[in-house]
Design a protein around this nucleic acid. Structure first.
Lengths: 233, 233
DNA sequence: TTGTCATATTCGGTGGGGCTAATGTAGCTT
DNA sequence: AAGCTACATTAGCCCCACCGAATATGACAA
């Protein structure tokens, strides 16, 4: 293992770039330089420089002025980091008193340092979990990740009963707010109303029989799987 | 926190140097360039360069051609790293199935990445422990470390009953051997014999009533506290 | 005193990864 | 077609932390 590298033989920076690129290329599209820079809080030229190195390493494909895509090798490395991150988040939450709103930063630091061995021990202690505290699927050690078609609360059809699956933010304030509102993965909600012009959505929480009004911005962070239509349209 | 630094505001490298210097300056003496280089597996010029930076940062005092000493600030930072390392070793051993012979490397990687908060959570989960799995004292969060006068098995007087306190190696093979021999912190032993010319020492283990013969090299790794004279001299 | 030798330091160079300022390009608009 | 704007890239620079080669120093021996 050369100096300055982690277990994977990649540097921390490289690992961060790959993770960022993975997150930015949801639908097999290209990740743009400026978006990577935004996500990693770097200047654009730094990204251009790294993009060059990454593509020389065979981890990404670069189409100048268009963006980048992970190669299968790059994707493997990215999924490995995501597994580490999510296993760590769950472990810290389960065993060390972290909450879903403050665990992200700690996992972000540890994900580069822990050995694969330790991650598998943690996963074992957790019973080989499939989801992290935010509901995001944990890739397997073999690099498989569950892909589910989810719909955001802000877009879901009226009258649909949904299961809240993923909360798409790491912002502590928003996460705390969601938790207060009972909007955590696993709860069932029905979309009862939505105001026009990108207005707020009204949800009915099945288990507690209470209503919640969720603005567009937050609604776009709540990802759900449909369970079936409850009320008529 | 500037880029490339850890929680302490120091880089990983700096943290490693400080820890190494602490370990090399047992009795308030100077740590020599070559010894630091040896411990960290670096070339001597690299150490000279870092020594310059560390002394500009006020973390060490450098007497050219003599060596370096930690300042109180440097000592604090070093003890902080040692606390992290030892808390991690104990946590991994207690909760994640590591053994005392394979835990060192993992702790070495994590000690730079974990937050102070996480260390204190681990310490809390462990009940604010005072010793790591090798018997080494864990500095407090405030930077106090227990200093006990210990004597090595290779030097201990004949006829003394001793409590084995610390095992001074991280070498997995030696640690495994010690464990097989029942030579772990906490056991009581009496020195019954020693061959001349730096020969092996014979120990009698109180609890199992068995004898062990320990050569000089290994005997120097086993540190004990005296309990009192048992047999006559 | 003068060598000699081990050790320390200085010098010059490398690579990773970041930055700002300057320049290039794609994709509109007009 | 020309120009504007947003974005990407190149150019030139910095810091960290390492290296080997060359040089300096201290301690001891002859």
């Amino acid at each position: 293992m050369p100096a300055g590298t982690t277990d994977s033989g990649l540097t921390r920076s490289v690992e961060d770039y790959l993770k960022a690129i993975f997150q930015l290329s949801h639908q097999g599209g290209f990740a743009a330089t400026r978006d990577i820079a935004g996500l990693l809080d770097l200047a654009a030229p730094s990204v251009s420089g790294m993009v060059k190195r990454l593509s020389e390493m065979g981890l990404i494909e670069h189409v100048p002025y268009r963006g980048v895509q992970l190669t299968s090798q790059g994707r493997r490395a990215a999924l490995r980091m995501i597994r580490r991150h999510r296993v760590l988040e769950l472990y810290l939450t389960r065993y060390l008193g972290y909450d879903w709103d403050n665990v992200h930063g700690e996992a972000e630091r540890l994900e580069h340092a822990v050995s694969d061995d330790l991650i598998e021990r943690m996963a074992g202690a957790l019973g080989d979990p499939r989801y992290d505290p935010h509901g995001d699927p944990i890739p397997t050690a073999e690099g498989e990740i569950e892909e589910t078609e989810l719909v955001s609360v802000a877009e879901a059809e009226l009258g649909t009963e949904l299961e809240l699956r993923q909360v798409g933010t790491q912002d502590p304030a928003r996460l705390r707010y969601f938790a207060e509102q009972g909007l955590v993965p696993g709860v069932r909600v029905t979309v009862t109303d939505r105001q026009p012009f990108n207005g707020p959505t009204t949800l009915f929480l099945t288990s507690t029989a209470t209503a919640r009004i969720v603005g567009r911005e937050l609604g776009q962070l709540l990802w759900c799987a449909p369970l079936g239509v409850v009320g008529g349209g």
